[in-house]
């Protein structure tokens, strides 16, 4: 979280300085007023979004998803893998270790790809935030348009690596990198 804060704080300061240089304190104040108005307008929605996220985090546990992903294959597996990815709570520091735990369990490579794309594209816990800030109509259009993306990615991966597991394709390189990271 600290890293993310710095990555937003620094550009915010830089742009505030640029606004001051470009248009003086008037332009800076205009920027701050827009920020304040957006914050006030979305405050209640953000509060409700976090209530929702908190409940989802309790309802959807790693164990539930692990059971779901364990014996998947075929088109059904691709669809469930995509949904499981979307349901998985937390950032990449949580879902990568989780999916890595399937490396030596014979999970098909295409299910792994579907899960990763499902997490990236769907991420259901992100939807309240998206609807609050971008607007429900555009959120709906965006989600409908990108709905097939994880499925298509899974089908393409299946077409090329039908009988291959994550282990047989990725593990050597991943292990090498993990080992490199551990040793450094």
């Amino acid at each position: 979280m600290k890293k993310s804060l710095i990555s937003i704080f620094v550009p915010a300061v830089i742009l505030t300085v640029i606004a001051f240089v470009a248009g003086g304190s008037g332009l800076v104040m205009k920027g701050f007023t827009i920020s304040m108005n957006t914050a006030l307008r979305t405050a209640l929605m953000l509060f409700v979004s976090f209530v929702l996220i908190g409940q989802l985090q309790i309802l959807i546990t790693k164990e539930v998803l692990e059971r779901l992903l364990q014996k998947l294959s075929g088109l059904k597996g691709i669809i469930i893998g995509a949904i499981a990815g979307g349901l998985f709570p937390g950032g990449p520091y949580i879902y990568f270790p989780f999916i890595q735990s399937f490396n030596n369990k014979g999970m098909p490579f295409y299910i792994f790809i579907t899960f990763i794309f499902g997490k990236n594209v769907y991420d259901f816990t992100r939807i309240p935030m998206e609807a609050s800030l971008i607007g429900p109509n555009i959120t709906l259009i965006r989600n409908l348009i990108t709905l097939p993306v994880p499925i298509i990615a899974g089908l393409i991966a299946r077409r090329f690596y039908k009988n291959r597991t994550i282990e047989s394709i990725l593990m050597k390189e991943g292990e090498k990198h993990a080992a490199d990271n551990n040793s450094s």
């Binding site: 937003i8 550009p11 915010a12 742009l15 505030t16 640029i18 606004a19 470009a22 248009g23 332009l27 800076v28 205009k30 920027g31 701050f32 007023t33 827009i34 920020s35 304040m36 957006t38 914050a39």
Partner: peptide, 11 residues
């Protein structure tokens, strides 16, 4: 992020 977005909007 709100401050950054406000500045983007005016700049």
């Amino acid at each position: 992020a709100f401050i950054l977005s406000g500045m983007i909007e005016v700049l």
